[in-house]
Design a protein around this nucleic acid. Structure first.
Lengths: 97, 97
DNA sequence: TAATTTTACTTTGTATTTCAAAGTACTTTA
DNA sequence: TAAAGTACTTTGAAATACAAAGTAAAATTA
């Protein structure tokens, strides 16, 4: 079980985004907005940060006549997140024993 | 079991400091330095941040003829940290079930 | 014993990050 | 067709991070 602290997940928004994308195959911008208390601009920049790291991928399309931006977690992202959770899990475990 | 995400613990150094102070009644500046890979200045500022939040307290004294700065976790700090760990624990649990 | 180095930190300044407000490019409603 | 809404992106000021430089005393070396 590999453990690795990842700075990318030091922010709650990015932590939550990744958490949601682990449980949901795909999620769109508005979906995130509803799940979290976050301004549009803030959400957008954090999504872009994760995208630049290739932890998530994006697809833009139109639903009806409205734009929709969909996100999903990449394998790289899933691995990194899991390793980060392993780090945290271990840290927590130390405080239980 | 109260859960609460705390920005104060978004940084690894502060996370580790707090973790060490949960397990050890007291710890000094050099002790932290040995435990972590961190520059003196960096460590100093993070300790001060935790101090300003009243999550840790400080006592300066001399051991022999050398100055020694000792730190310990306050009740407020212990509570905040525990609640933060609870938040993380819950997040991790969601990914196991 | 004077000069140099080390110790135990703190302060400073630059770089990076954060996030709300403003902006964009439409679509929908009145 | 004007005004309001939607689905984002960009911008800029403020906060944060951290290495380098600074400080003050102690220990070592010459």
């Amino acid at each position: 079980m590999k453990r690795k602290y990842d700075k990318a997940f030091e922010n709650v928004i990015r932590l939550q985004v990744m958490s949601i994308l682990m449980a949901n195959e795909r999620f769109d911008f508005n979906g995130f907005k509803e799940m979290m208390e976050v301004s549009d601009g803030n959400l957008s920049t954090h999504l872009r940060t994760l995208e630049k790291l290739e932890y998530i991928a994006v697809e833009k399309s139109f639903v009806g006549r409205k734009p929709q931006t969909n996100y999903w977690a990449t394998t790289k992202g899933r691995l990194a997140f899991q390793e980060h959770l392993n780090y945290l899990e271990n840290l927590i475990k130390e405080h239980k024993s």
